[in-house]
Design a protein around this nucleic acid. Structure first.
Length: 415
RNA sequence: CGGGGCGUAGUAUACCGGUAGUACGUCUGCUUUGGGAGCAGAUAGACCGAGUUCGAUUCUCGGCGCCCCGACCA
């Protein structure tokens, strides 16, 4: 798109009350806006990133056999009373309508998905399967903090799987570890994200979190470099060794939890009487697992991990645009404008997402903004590049600059 | 929820018991155009409420909001 059409603006300074790197950079670059503590609007550039993350997750969930649905946010009180969580979950938002009827704003969706599936599960022949959604969750955090990392309303992917028995749940659960690792790899934080052993509550020995190492993290984990997993604080206090290889030499890090997977077993199927008939015709409780990923949290974590002094740095797969085409002096110099436009048109025809800075501004301002936005590749068209008969191509991550021919530039996007 | 800090134009800040100055932004015009450019002009502000006072943006109290530490975060 043409940058002159983009309604957002960048800022030189972040609001003084923002401390979190993710909030500072995302607000300065015009990716998000804060409505209130822990509640953010995604602006066009930020939403593009969020949607890229969503699509990666969608692709991976579909590959794993997940079927996408969308459940509501308003949950009748009765469902939450059935599981007892109306009274025990203290970060539950409760809303009352004018007739006095009470609802919960969903912080998670077991209370909806389990009754839902009663209609569709009656026999072992219906199992196993899994369903997932992308949906805004509401949690009444007493203290929202760390920019977009801990919000009161946030977009989450939650998947629920349904099985005949624990063996089948375990099979699926183990497969999901790989699926999650792939999601974080594609989002650009694979190298610093660890499968982490966490407390499994009373029903499973462990649950697993995916923790990304960053100073902005709010959890403490202990990384085992031998088998590339980590252990969270609760577990380490019990046993002080890597549960996977017994290694005692663990490295302490702060990390942010970007996802988790949990064996629910029959915790929710029992209160709702979600059952199936097995081969012998006997009624059995459905065995379940759940799998969450916070999308905004991934976005914020990427900023924390990769952002530098000049601004945001986006990995290719989730960048708002693939290329920032920066034209210098194009509004006065018809030849420059023409060159920029023809490259833009050609790239767009190839399906490349290009942000074309066609505005009338000094070069320095354009470069500073370009760095701040963090698009992976910047291509400059100016009198200088015109004279050279080439384009100047710069990589945001390394700062490496190269003069390339049109064929080179286009070639990078042709499979 | 306990503790701490902070609320002044869109943003960042300054001064002051006598109604507020600067920079950036924004708007106009001209000049610029390879690292947030220059000149001229314009625009725009004391979170809310109560109290003290002749007078409160300034002092006091309360509320609300924001940030940080802690607790909490299936």
């Amino acid at each position: 798109m043409k940058q002159s059409q983009l309604f957002t603006k960048t800022r030189k300074e972040a609001p003084s009350d923002e401390v979190a790197k993710n909030a500072k950079l995302l607000i300065r670059a015009g990716f998000v806006d804060k409505l209130q503590a822990g509640v953010y609007t995604y602006l066009p550039l930020g939403l593009r990133v969020l949607k890229k993350i969503e699509n990666i997750i969608r692709e991976e969930m579909n590959k794993a056999g997940g079927q996408e649905i969308l459940m509501p946010s308003l949950h009748p009180k009765e469902l939450w009373q059935t599981t007892g969580r109306w009274d025990t979950m203290d970060d539950l938002y409760k809303v009352k309508d004018s007739s006095g009827r009470e609802n919960a704003l969903g912080p998670t969706h077991e209370e909806v998905v389990v009754p839902l599936m009663k209609q569709f599960i009656s026999s072992y022949r219906n199992l196993p399967f899994s369903a997932y959604q992308f949906q805004n969750k509401f949690r009444m955090e007493l203290r929202a903090k760390s920019g977009i990392l801990r919000g009161r309303e946030f977009l989450m992917k939650d998947m629920y799987s349904f099985h005949e028995d624990e063996a089948d749940l375990t099979r699926f659960y183990e497969a999901m570890k790989g699926v999650y690792a792939r999601v974080f790899e594609r989002a650009g934080i694979g190298a610093v994200t660890y499968l982490t052993f966490a407390s499994g509550g009373s029903f499973a020995k462990y649950s697993h979190e995916f923790q990304t190492v960053t100073p902005a993290g709010e959890d403490t984990i202990y990384v085992c470099d031998t088998c590339r997993v980590a252990v969270n604080k609760e577990i380490i206090e019990e046993q002080n060794t890597c549960p996977s290889c017994g290694n005692k030499d663990l490295r302490k890090e702060t990390a942010i939890e970007v996802g988790n997977i949990f064996e629910l077993k029959t915790r929710f199927s029992e209160p709702f009487k979600l059952t199936y008939k097995n081969k012998e015709g006997k009624e059995q409780a459905v065995v379940m697992g759940c799998y969450g990923i916070g999308l905004g949290r991934i976005l914020g974590t990427v900023v924390e991990v990769l952002g530098d002094d000049n601004g945001l740095v986006w990995p290719k797969e989730i960048a708002p645009f693939a290329m920032h085409l920066v034209e210098l002096g194009g509004s006065k110099d018809a030849a420059v404008r023409k060159e920029a436009e023809s490259l833009y048109v050609e790239l767009v025809a190839l399906g490349v997402e290009v942000l074309w800075d066609d505005r009338d501004m000094p070069g320095g301002a354009k470069f500073a903004e370009s760095d701040l936005m963090g698009i992976p590749v910047r291509v400059v068209v100016s009198q200088k590049t015109l004279e050279a008969g080439k384009f100047e191509v710069r990589e945001r991550t390394s700062g490496k600059v190269e003069m390339q021919t049109r064929a080179d530039v286009l070639g990078a996007y042709i499979q």
